[in-house]
Nucleic acid binder design. Structure first.
Lengths: 214, 214
DNA sequence: ATTACTAGTTCCCGAGTAT
DNA sequence: TATACTCGGGAACTAGTAA
């Protein structure tokens, strides 16, 4: 296992810039790495012999700076992490499939016609519930509003729908996040779509899926 | 030495996003790390037990994804590298002190009055030469132009000056980069200032210094 | 196929210490 | 004071192999 980069990284944390230098003794540098003075010294001589750092060793410590090659090694790591974390236009939330209360199917049935009008298709009569541990915040999302209605003496409130997609493994299908007017489950996300997602994506309780929306 | 992060990093290089998953067998993952199938397997079970990754192990390989905690470990590293590499408003060039040709002092003497007019002080009669291996490119720098003149039948060309600062260790002093009209030494930087920099900063040939300018 | 345990080997760590 | 070498003990590696 390459550990050179790990040491270069710990060094970089103590430098203000790639051209800065650190004056330190091998015992103190060892503490930064969680190793002994001897190992620290060994690491530093090794990094120097590999052309990743330059040192001026004195009787009172040593000044350490990265060489061009050392900086390049860190820059490569930085670039790859930058790419990994680059925020996509899409907002992504990861959630875990959980059992719904069975209410979903009932309500989708009641709203069926209105959903068909708004979304352009008649949704599968059931919801997929995801545990997202409060990580969902739809502030900036595009939404579609479905107005509430009364049936007899029962009230059915407004619903907000967010077009999204759900992906699991290599599969990705369109879906809609639905948010009842008075949402009580802040930690759960309710999804509807053309299909039974559990069958379509082969989902079981506890599976982790990713929901993307704009 | 902590190597967990190094392994997480190698994993992240194979993922499209923090929520992506990688299907791979332990032998192949070992190759990515440069270790055996057995070590690779040991690493993965350890990372899992530490809550840094989640796995679904099957008879044909395993799908691996980062946990929230694993993502956080990488994000911390990314943030610190971001800080380390953050481009300052200042442009920084690192150079190595080299012997000049002795011409510097002669020319500074000739331009002395004009430099005093332009820069506001009479410079030390000598230059500090830095080997910058072609890394210096003053495209966007603020410059001060000093016009050339004739003395008898000798021509002294225009000079471009860039206000800058030179730092070495903890010391940092103002200086000017001077660029003769027909600069022949693309790999060298010539600096002037109020002082003898070699004395002021305790410089010797081969020392690395940093020059900053805007 | 895999994963991952056991066992034997390598090599790394750090205490002691020379310089 | 430092750095960094030697060397004994142990951690970590991998070959073999069970599941």
């Amino acid at each position: 296992m390459k550990q050179d980069t790990q040491i270069l990284y710990e060094l970089s944390r103590r430098l203000k810039s790639p051209y800065d230098e650190l004056f330190i003794n091998s015992a103190e540098f060892g503490k930064l790495l969680g190793v002994s003075q001897q190992s620290s010294s060994r690491y530093l001589t090794r990094l120097e012999s590999r052309g990743l750092i330059e040192r001026k060793v004195t009787g009172r410590g040593q000044s350490i700076r990265l060489t061009e090659r050392g900086v390049e090694a860190l820059r490569k790591m930085h670039t790859e992490l930058e790419n990994f974390f680059r925020t996509h236009a899409e907002i992504q939330v990861r959630g875990r499939v959980v059992k719904g209360l069975g209410e979903g199917a009932y309500y989708i049935g009641k709203y069926s016609e209105r959903l068909k009008d708004a979304l352009g298709f008649e949704p599968y009569q059931g919801t997929l519930n995801l545990d997202v541990k409060g990580k969902f915040s739809p502030e900036r999302a595009k939404t579609i509003r479905i107005e509430g209605f009364k049936e007899g003496n029962r009230c059915f409130g407004d619903i907000t729908c967010i077009p999204a997609s759900i992906s699991h493994g290599k599969s990705k299908v369109d879906c809609w996040i639905i948010i009842p007017e008075r949402s009580h489950h802040r930690d759960e996300l309710e999804l509807i779509g053309k299909f039974n997602f559990r069958k379509k994506l082969g989902l079981r309780d506890g599976d982790v899926v990713e929901v993307s929306f704009s």
